[in-house]
Design a protein around this nucleic acid. Sequence first.
DNA 1: CTTGACCCTCACGTAACGTCCGGTTTTACC
DNA 2: GGTAAAACCGGACGTTACGTGAGGGTCAAG
Lengths: 245, 245
Amino acid sequence: MKLRIGELARRTGLTVRTLRHYDEIGLLTPGERTDSEHRLYSEADLRTLQQIQSLKAIGLPLGQIRTVLQTPGHDPQRVIGEHIRVLEEELERQRALLERLKRLDVRGASWPDLLEVIRMSEKVDRMLETARRVGVEPKFDDEQKRYLEERRVAVGEARIKEVEEAWPRLMDEVLREMEAGTSAMDPRVLELARRWRDLVAEFTGGRQDIGGALNESYQRNMPPEMQAMWSYIGEAMKVLDVPEA
Amino acid sequence: MKLRIGELARRTGLTVRTLRHYDEIGLLTPGERTDSEHRLYSEADLRTLQQIQSLKAIGLPLGQIRTVLQTPGHDPQRVIGEHIRVLEEELERQRALLERLKRLDVRGASWPDLLEVIRMSEKVDRMLETARRVGVEPKFDDEQKRYLEERRVAVGEARIKEVEEAWPRLMDEVLREMEAGTSAMDPRVLELARRWRDLVAEFTGGRQDIGGALNESYQRNMPPEMQAMWSYIGEAMKVLDVPEA
DNA sequence: CTTGACCCTCACGTAACGTCCGGTTTTACC
DNA sequence: GGTAAAACCGGACGTTACGTGAGGGTCAAG
């Protein structure tokens, strides 16, 4: 009941080249050869190969498959669990990248513009990441916390997500104007300031004390690049308060 | 203002090796060399490199970056859009794989068991995939459709997702018992049949006519492997109806 | 004139094979 | 028994984006 390589390939759906590869890397070496060096696989080899296919199907790299099949002391839970964690991390990276890509405002942009947009987007991401790492959690008192919680419920999850996604988008645009050297008094920047103000208002519910706490905590811990943006848009917002000055 | 390779590396955060690599593949070739063949990069090269970094940051492969930077006729929208689609597909594959992995009932399984579980899981996935492709959509009449829609609302999205995830899990187990040759009358299989019945009931709301239509459409179009499972669990469900026979 | 920092060109390794090549061996048919 | 097709063999390059040496020039400072 010995199988030649072509027959084994047909039975498993793999290619002959793949089987030779598995032999090369020591993953599945046929115990026997004919006098003319043709590989002869046993039924046991077939079973082993099916196990290999199973493990490959869950994305385990061949090296690890070899290890787990050849050293008996491996705990399935641990191996699978570890693998799941690896995949989850990978997935999260992919997801974040895709989200940033979708956020890009590509409509009608030329290549040079587009490249600028991408750079800004990365910068914003790095800034937000730094902010998260350093921790800019504002200190609200209990009453303020209750109030914010009520607002979350009132506004609804869907809108909250929308707002959270709108933030980096807006910051992209602000950063772009800033780096382009546009004056904070420019109508375009004023429009951005208006959107900025509205987003903040939507979060704070218009309460000045909460906005103040927010502002202060950010100012204290924020990375320098973010500070520059903060004061830039702050300039513009000041002008908003005196509409026809 | 010519930069040597090390200086350029420092300014961009890339490694010297990377820059040499970009030269090798023709992505960024310095226009000049010293008499001793040392690379000399211009300011324009620096800018190009920054563009390369931008495009690399959104995950574009180097080959494509070269193409878009060297042939002027490329529309950003199309390139980015295409890239997004590629990433989405990739993400979906990863997500599906991870979901299947998490679905596996690994608790306390030995390696041989585990490999069986994985095989069943793949089989179920293939069956469901085939079913989707062939299209097993049952033909409900308008009244039945309205009824099902009402039930969806009544039951709630969260529970619906739970049920949808529970299905393949249950099928894994059924298939395993079946392939292990367990009798359909075995208590373990009866328990599975109970769960099966309950899941169906949760979908149909207990209405016999809907269950019948469902059953019939599946029986007609289902892949043969699935038919076997269907009649296997059907056997067990018959026994459920006569509790103390 | 030497030392250290910087630069150069090979060239192998990575993951999992696909593809092509030139050369045997087996199998089927006459 | 001869021949031709089918199957098999090992070798080697290609894929992606570099990391990591090996072995050897170049250049400024001391």
